[in-house]
Design a protein around this nucleic acid. Structure first.
Lengths: 145, 145
DNA sequence: AATATTTAAGAGTATTTTGTCTTTTATAAA
DNA sequence: TTTATAAAAGACAAAATACTCTTAAATATT
């Protein structure tokens, strides 16, 4: 098992790369990013397309085209990114996978799991992409294997 | 995305079912369980086989055969079960999927994620299957859709 | 206008996970 | 000892996820 999908990992890595190179300011070339991060170009393109469709990134085609932030990384929360990459119901899912699990018809782990899940949710909601990106830049942390 | 795999969900549901019907005491028939929980019989069999191989369950073949707990549910932690069902490294994985991520060569999210991960880990380590099973029995909570 | 560049989109392939079916092995009961 | 029952094991099929390749559309430069 993995906590997030491969696409999610790739997406987060690309976003962190962008956020930690914001002096670059404008648009990032996807081909270059794919090489720097060692992620398949076409696959990364698709993942970033989704983020563009969800209004997190904007893109331009043609020479010097690329992808850039639509909102400032200060205003982008980790929670928002995980939902965009892993599905809107990420923080609502039943641990046992039971559909319709909730207050009205809880599974045996509902209350327990909801506590844990909500902690994670609020943690992710109060962490911005800028926070993580600054960290990356200042400490020269790696985004590749 | 899902937090645990489908096999993991099925395994937990079966174990909760067993733990909450402990008056039954002895062995549980897998066919019956698969019907009560609406899980494919053969698939469930394989999942329980793994739990048997990992020393959490024991099994007997033949008439009145089945699977039962090897240790008492009081002594089985949720942490142990998740590791058995999702892999031993469940609580050690890098959120970005980077191999070898750790103190020596951390990814930008390492410290942050380690905090969250360790919380989850200790939460799961201090929760027994018996706790969850008792809950299920006393409150008549559902394990099926 | 023509060409080159770069993302978008879609079709197709590979791998992993999930699920099914069949055969084997162990055990109990007649 | 034969038969029935139930888990173990393995081969196979289907679905989901991950990845590749080709074509289309947009934009900039000449």
């Amino acid at each position: 098992m993995r906590v997030i999908s491969k696409s999610g990992e790739y997406g987060l890595r690309a976003l962190l790369h962008m956020a930690s190179n914001q002096e670059n300011e404008g648009f990032f070339n996807i081909r270059e990013m794919s090489e720097e991060l060692d992620i398949s170009f076409h696959f990364l393109t698709k993942i970033l397309q989704v983020l563009t469709q969800k209004g997190i990134l904007q893109s331009y085609r043609g020479p010097n085209g690329g992808v850039g932030f639509l909102k400032s990384p200060e205003e982008i929360t980790l929670s928002e990114l995980v939902r965009a990459l892993e599905g809107d119901d990420f923080f609502d899912k039943c641990l046992l996978g039971l559909p319709g699990c909730g207050e009205r018809q809880p599974c045996p782990m509902h209350a327990y799991w909801m506590g844990i899940r909500n902690n994670l949710k609020s943690e992710f909601e109060t962490t911005s992409l800028a926070d993580l990106g600054k960290n990356t830049r200042l400490q020269h942390l790696r985004l590749i294997a």
